[in-house]
């Protein structure tokens, strides 16, 4: 997967990080940039960041991943090393229709990381298995 973001998106996130570290906010210009690159997804993702929905989960083995609480309250898993989210929008509009580069949960991770708003969570190695591959029957 083209997990590596386009240069323009990476540059924008770097700019947001710098801006937020200095002023604890994001300028309108950068917000417009987000909207321009990611479309409506940007707004939903910022909403998730506001709700502090993103957790960076680590286990003693060193394995790490992300969990994002969606707007419906459902928990989604996103991988740390490549673009993957367990939400339906990722399968549908990112993988199948190719409409979007990312779903709102993955963008929320990028933004939370840039703004330092990720919750840090530690789980056991066994719990990590269930987060990576939830066994719902």
């Amino acid at each position: 997967m083209d997990a590596i973001l386009p240069t323009v998106a990476e540059e924008l996130l770097r700019e947001i990080k710098r801006n937020y570290q200095e002023t604890s906010q994001i300028t309108d210009e950068l917000l417009l940039g987000l909207k321009f690159i990611f479309g409506p997804t940007a707004l939903y993702a910022l909403d998730l960041v506001d709700q502090r929905s993103v957790s960076h989960v680590t286990s003693p083995s060193g394995r790490s991943t992300f969990q994002v609480v969606g707007s419906s309250g459902k928990m989604y898993t996103c991988f740390a090393s490549c673009h993957y989210c367990s939400c339906p929008a990722f399968s549908f509009s990112v993988l199948r229709k190719n409409d979007n580069m990312l779903c709102k949960h993955i963008l929320a991770i990028y933004l939370s990381q840039a703004m330092g708003l990720c919750q840090e969570l530690t789980v056991t190695d066994k719990q990590m298995c269930d987060i990576l591959f939830p066994k719902e029957d």
């Binding site: 997967m1 090393s81 993957y84 990722f90």
Partner: peptide, 15 residues
């Protein structure tokens, strides 16, 4: 299997 299955196994392997 759908694209979600393909993405999950690929993503897990890469991860």
């Amino acid at each position: 299997c759908g694209s979600a299955d393909g993405a999950l196994i690929s993503g897990l392997l890469l991860d």
